[in-house]
């Protein structure tokens, strides 16, 4: 009985609030489906009023480039988390891909290749990410060990690999075209912003329109049902781990093009930031719920907050406190909004 009521809880609110004129009601309902965007609008207006430097095209481009790193990983993390899994190793993969790419393009073998030497390096970097994702996925599939533990191990192990591989050294990109790419623009937008936006749209389409996307929700929502229906859950989850591995590697590469270098400590704590952004965007840790529009909002919220507070010259540490507070507040609000369903059983 409690179960049947629980399902009705969340749906009530939008319907009741949506009784006004149709244009307003549909946008209101949309906002309630993605509460993070309301927050994005609020902080956007707030910083536009509070500081002169915020509201400018140049700054918006900045924000997009700054968020692109976290944002790319968050795209993949959304898939993995909707699956009911998690990937804590993304930060380490960022460092590995960046170090590999920057190092390999300097190998003597490719010396005569000119700018083409970047190509095998990038392929190797991305390949390493996909491979590590596949390894995580394979272990989760074949051993049945919780993804949290598997990727926690990988987080340590891959970081260890990075330190051993680099000998704890930073690498610098000898090919200047690499660093130029990170600073380049295309049709008036920074190239890195384009990369982020294009992949956002792409993953959104995959998740909302394709069979793989529908299966992603099904597996996270009710794994037993997915198995019963004949979905090959193990390989399916592995693919999503490979996707998040790809995006973590891509983020590492774009980050190193911005710096023209890689450091072995690159991407530390990224897993926590990415999970924060994804959860802010409405993805449930228990799986089965979430979407890319929300995740994009979550990433932007963090990006605008960091950027705006930086412009207001608020010390960086307040951002940490505010971010933690927002994360808990969002969780608290979500709990309150969905509460009616419990019918007051005191557990």
């Amino acid at each position: 009985m409690a179960e049947s009521a629980a399902g009705q809880g969340p749906s009530k609110l939008p319907r009741e609030l949506g009784k006004g004129s149709s244009g307003w009601s549909s946008s209101l309902r949309w906002l309630l489906g993605h509460p993070i965007w309301a927050f994005v609008v609020i902080v956007f207006i707030f910083f536009s009023l509070m500081t002169d430097d915020f509201f400018s095209l140049g700054n918006f481009q900045n924000i997009l480039v700054q968020t692109s790193t976290l944002g790319l990983i968050a795209l993949g993390m959304t898939l993995v988390m909707i699956n009911g899994n998690i990937d804590l190793s993304v930060g380490a993969v960022v460092a590995l891909a960046a170090s590999l790419t920057v190092d390999i393009m300097g190998w003597p073998v490719f010396e005569s290749w000119g700018n083409l030497q970047i190509l095998p390096a990038v392929v190797a970097g991305l390949g390493a990410g996909v491979l590590l994702g596949a390894l995580n996925g394979l272990i989760v599939w074949k051993t049945g060990v919780d993804a949290f533990i598997v990727t926690l191990g990988a987080m340590l192990g891959v970081r260890g690999l990075v330190f051993v591989y680099t000998g704890e050294q930073s690498f610098f990109a000898m090919n200047f075209a690499y660093a130029d790419f990170g600073a380049s623009s295309f049709l008036g937008l920074p190239t890195l912003a384009w990369v982020f936006l294009v992949f956002t749209v792409l993953v959104h389409i995959v998740l909302s329109r394709t069979v793989h996307g529908a299966n992603t929700y099904a597996v996270g929502d009710n794994r037993e049902a997915a198995v019963n229906a004949g979905i090959r859950v193990g390989p399916h989850m592995m693919i999503n781990f490979m996707i998040v591995g790809f995006f973590a590697a891509l983020a590492g590469i774009t980050l190193s093009t911005q710096m023209g270098a890689s450091t072995p400590n690159l991407g530390r704590d990224y897993e926590l930031w990415v999970i924060t952004a994804t959860v802010l965007g409405g993805t449930k840790l228990t799986g089965g719920a979430g979407n890319i529009i929300g995740t994009f909002g979550g990433v932007l919220a963090i990006g605008i907050l960091r950027n705006g507070m930086n412009l207001m010259q608020v010390p960086a540490f307040y951002v940490l406190v505010i971010l933690g507070a927002i994360l808990i507040a969002v969780l608290f609000l979500d709990k309150q909004l969905n509460r009616q369903g419990e019918e007051g059983l005191r557990l």
């Binding site: 399902g7 529908a214 299966n215 929700y217 099904a218 929502d221 009710n222 037993e224 049902a225 997915a226 019963n228 229906a229 004949g230 979905i231 089965g288 719920a289």
Partner: peptide, 15 residues
């Protein structure tokens, strides 16, 4: 054996 977040149609043809 149903996924609650999916639609009726998706559930019926799940897999």
């Amino acid at each position: 054996s149903l996924a609650e977040q999916l639609t009726v149609a998706e559930n019926i043809f799940l897999g």
